[in-house]
């Protein structure tokens, strides 16, 4: 779409394509759970269970197809004084966080991400609504990024 929201002169760093795998597995698991739920519910109240499953299946397929694009849409950029983050294709979101506002940086690794060698980096500011979480970073990259961000935050520290 020509009209997509795009910031001028931003060069995005993308996350690892391996995130697609982990997102895919997550989506499959939740679809399975959802189908099971639909089956049990529809068996009790309604005989047309197949239709419920079909609806869930169609939604799941759309989600599956969109996963690679969603992962490719995640990006971040370390600018001079702030971190820029974007995600989403249908619902786009851009966030700019000055380094000095960072209160702490978290690195999370789930079991699946660990198998794939991925980490998730989370930035916490004093505002709960900032909500910047970069998934799908390679472990070494995540550690390096965290150290870099902490150092940057230290040099630009500001109060609340």
């Amino acid at each position: 779409m020509a009209d997509r929201l795009e910031l001028p002169d931003a060069t995005w760093q993308r996350v690892s394509p391996r995130l697609i795998v982990s997102e895919f597995v997550g989506a499959v698991i939740s679809t399975a759970i959802f189908i099971a739920a639909v089956l049990t519910l529809t068996n009790v109240v309604w005989s047309g269970a197949i239709w419920g499953v079909a609806v869930v299946g169609v939604i799941a397929i759309i989600v599956f197809v969109l996963i690679p694009r969603r992962v490719r849409a995640i990006g971040y950029q370390l600018r001079d004084d702030d971190l820029l983050f974007r995600r989403g294709i249908l619902f786009q979101r851009f966030v700019a966080v000055p380094y000095g506002r960072m209160q702490l940086v978290d690195i999370n690794r789930g079991p699946l991400s660990r198998m794939l060698g991925l980490s998730e980096l989370k930035f916490v500011t004093a505002a709960a609504s900032t909500g910047v979480t970069i998934p799908g970073l390679r472990e070494a990259d995540a550690d390096e990024l965290r150290d870099k961000l902490v150092a940057l935050a230290e040099t630009r520290r500001a109060g609340l």
Partner: peptide, 15 residues
């Protein structure tokens, strides 16, 4: 000086 961060959103209708 009190701003923590800023974000920009766009959903399908807005787009």
């Amino acid at each position: 000086p009190r701003l923590q961060s800023v974000s920009l959103h766009q959903g399908p209708i807005l787009r």
